[in-house]
Structure formats: structure tokens, C-alpha cells
Write a protein that binds this DNA or RNA. Sequence first.
DNA 1: TCAATAGTATTGTCATATAAATGACTGAGG
DNA 2: CCTCAGTCATTTATATGACAATACTATTGA
Lengths: 260, 260
Amino acid sequence: MTAAEQSSDLVSDADVVAPSTSTPTARAAEQQLLRGLHGQIVDNLGRRIVSGQYAPGESLSQESLLDEFGISRTVLREAMRVLADKGLVSSRQRLGTQIAARTSWRLLDSDMLRWLGSQPDDSFLDQLAEVRAIVEPASARFAAERRSDEDVAKLRSALDAMATAAANSDAEAAIEADLAFHRALLDSMHNELMSRMEIVIEAGLRARNERVHAGQHVPEFVSVHAAIVDAVEAGDGEAAAAATIALLEQATRDTSIAAD
Amino acid sequence: MTAAEQSSDLVSDADVVAPSTSTPTARAAEQQLLRGLHGQIVDNLGRRIVSGQYAPGESLSQESLLDEFGISRTVLREAMRVLADKGLVSSRQRLGTQIAARTSWRLLDSDMLRWLGSQPDDSFLDQLAEVRAIVEPASARFAAERRSDEDVAKLRSALDAMATAAANSDAEAAIEADLAFHRALLDSMHNELMSRMEIVIEAGLRARNERVHAGQHVPEFVSVHAAIVDAVEAGDGEAAAAATIALLEQATRDTSIAAD
DNA sequence: TCAATAGTATTGTCATATAAATGACTGAGG
DNA sequence: CCTCAGTCATTTATATGACAATACTATTGA
């Protein structure tokens, strides 16, 4: 079998390399992972494992995966290494490649969060919201004490984009602006680790967006965000935290209403 | 060159596969990563990049790395895939493999945190402490509302181990018990994502331990932890959060005293 | 029954060959 | 001298087959 035939095998089997079932908004996040053949395999197997299609402890013979995907050993091994790094599988000689127990999955990984977020189970969404409720108000409080003028400018810029998107009813742009806002808020704390918590926020926003496809354009949407910026700019940590809590509570309320 | 000669190349070059410079306590964390030849390469290159030995944007020819390590393409490629997944490098044809900008590093990864924590720079330690100060009190508050009897049992068990370690002046056991305690506390919140925040706590504990090799056995050490368990068991979220804040503040105080 | 051992299946590693991508160069044409 | 299309060279991407290492399984011998 030639290389050309193999890759056509892969492409022809829609279930194997389908770019994923997520919305177009998530494409950017996937681009990094999907770079290259191995990335497609990682994405595909990652989704399968996370969705419970394989049971923990189950053995995944590499040989059969080679047959199924029609790829070379090299590519499969690269994919397995990445999956092992995420704690999803564990390969040992003679024993085969086994699905790891869920407790060893490294959930604080943007790919893992994306895969889990697109699961039909809503309980993960609640967990994401809880983490946001812990992280974001605290972040806003620190941000109020540390924000630079540039930080404030970024927040206002995101706010403008949000207003524009709302005016145009552009759901796509609204999500991007929302994300940019929360990223800017985290960044204003000037703590690298907290900035990386964006992966949780992004997963939460996108997962919610996949579920409630409308109705989140309530009138107060922009003004509630604006209240956070005002408090941060004024250096009022208490008010910033309170405004962030109010925002998250409103978002939760909107989501549960939409779910009815 | 035969396989045997190659692996001896690797072993003979002490700088290349030295199991790392961290304390024996960190060995467990490394075991997963160091499984296999590729894992050693990942660890080695990861440390180099994180330590700033390579500048962002700098090109890392795979060919020269093959020469340096004396390994096969397969192994190097697997290592590169894992590093790329962690956001440390980005490989493109013709351009070579380039060191990625720090902003794209995925810091919420146990390996990254371990590498960064063993850097001489103390500012990262401060950031770890800030995250703990945000995450742990909130986690304790939720834990008080949700803890099962089993959760309390685990907390008390860790507490006992802590007391025993203190009595025996066993620093190694003390750290493990401390870690077990904080893991149990996070688990008591019954939120998978929060449980995974253990990687931040572990990195913080181990990094601090590498710096202050003594003196943290202050008498109140166990009792301050016990106060958290009591509050959690009693279902008093407010007290649990307060006790956790007190614990973290004391730890920070001890560390800064030791640093003088 | 048990212990040592040979067999066997599976991943781990290596070496080499070919494909693909892309920046750099070159030369013709204006 | 400048522009641009085409070609080239370099580097990673992928494929493939061979052999090594490992650990479970079954068998053999006492």
C-alpha cells in the first residue's frame, strides 16, 4: 500500500478524521492539535476515550489501530505518546496499550477540556462553572490592585467588541469578545498561572454556547461586564470581585432558564 | 552504531540523562515521565527550554539533537510531539523546530510546574502560593458542605501521618503526608477539576521544600491542619475557609523567615 | 504441587527511504 | 534596477521492516 492510498483511506473513513463535531468557533483551538496526521489521531482517540467508548483498563492493541486508521507505526506511536502524556493511556510491553483510570487523566489541559466539554453530560459543565466561580472573582480582586493602563485598555476594547457584536447579533463575535474580556481580566492579575486558567473559562464558554444557541443577549450583558472594568480601573478589589460574582450568577441563571 | 552502543552513549553523557537535579521526594512524580527513552529526552529538553537555555524563536535542528543524544529519529520525534503538546516547541518543515513564546506554554501541567519550580527564580514560587491562596480556601468551603465520612477519614489519616512524621523528624514522610492532606481536602469538594489542582499544590510544596530544608516543623503545624478538618467535619464552610487561609499564611511566614 | 524454563505476543527502538513544505536563490523580462 | 515566476536546497513528516526487550503463559521436570 502506498502512502497516497493510505491517506485516502484515512480521509474516506469519515468517522476517523471528521474535524470534530464542535462548532466553528472551536476551530481555532483545534488548529494547534490537528496540525499533522498524528494530531488527527490524537483528537480522534482522545474523544473516544473521554466519551467512554473504551473502558478503563481495556487494552487497545496498536496493531489493530494501525489497521483501522491505515497509518504508519511512527504516526501512531507519536499519537500514543501524546495521549500517554495526557494521562489517557499507558503503554507497556507485552501488556499492550491500556486505557488509564479516569483519576489519572490530566484534566487541566485544553484538549481534554474541549473533549470533555463536548460530551452530552452536563455535570462537567457544572464543575467548570464552579471553578470559574472560584477563580474569576479572586482574579478580579487582584486585578483591581495591579492592573496597568494597558490592562484597562484591553478590557475596554473587549467590552467594545462585545457591544458591537450584540448590536449586530453576531453570536460568533460575541463569544470571541467574551473570551477576550475574561482573558484580559485574568491577565490583569499578572500571574502567569492564573492567566493559563483561561483554558477552563474557554471550555466553559464554548460548552455553554454549544448548548444554548440563543437568548444570552440579555440587555444587561454588556453593562454587567462594564461594572467589572469600572471597579478594576478604580482599584476597588471588593467591588470588582462582587461584580464578577454577579456576572457569573447571571450567566448561570440564563443557562438554566434556557435549559428549561 | 549498534543499539547497545547508543544507549551507553546516552548514559555516559551525564548532563544528558541525569535523572534531574530535584530531591528524591520528586522521584515519584518523575517516574511517569521518565518511563522510556523518549521520556528522558522530554525531561531533558523541557528543563533546558524552561530554564531559558534556548531563546524563544530559536531553531533546534533535529539533526543536531540526534547527534547530541545519540538516539533514533523515532525517539526524538516522540519527544518533540510531547514537547509540542506542552506548547514548548513548534516544528515546521524547512523552518526547523522552534522554541515557542512563553505565552503559549501550557503551564497547568505537572511536568511544566515541576520544571519551573526547580528554577532558581523565586517569583514563580510566589505565583504558586497565590494560586493556592485562591484555590484552597474556596475548596475547603465547598468541602465542608459536601464531605462524606470517607473524606473526613482520609483527612484524619493524613493528619496522623503528619503527626508521626513530625515526631520522627522525617522530612520526607512529612511532605508526603502534607500532600496527602491537601489532596484529600481538594477531593472532598467532589469536583474533578478542583482535584486536579493538586498539581499546583504539589509543585508549591516540593519547590518550597527544596529551598527550606528545615525549620518547618513548628509545633502548631499539625494543629493548624487539624483545625481545617474539624471545620470541614462540622460542616462549617466559613471556619474551614478561615482555617485554610490561616494555614497558608503561616506557611508563607515560615518560608520568608527561613529565607532570611 | 511447584518451580524453572521455553514460548509467544506486544510494545520499544532503530535505520533508512521517500514525501512534502517552504524559504532562498536565480534569472528572465520589464 | 526592480519584479516575479520558477527552481533548488533544507528540514521536518511519514512510511516501513527489522530486531530488541519485556512480561505473561504454558509446559516440563522434579
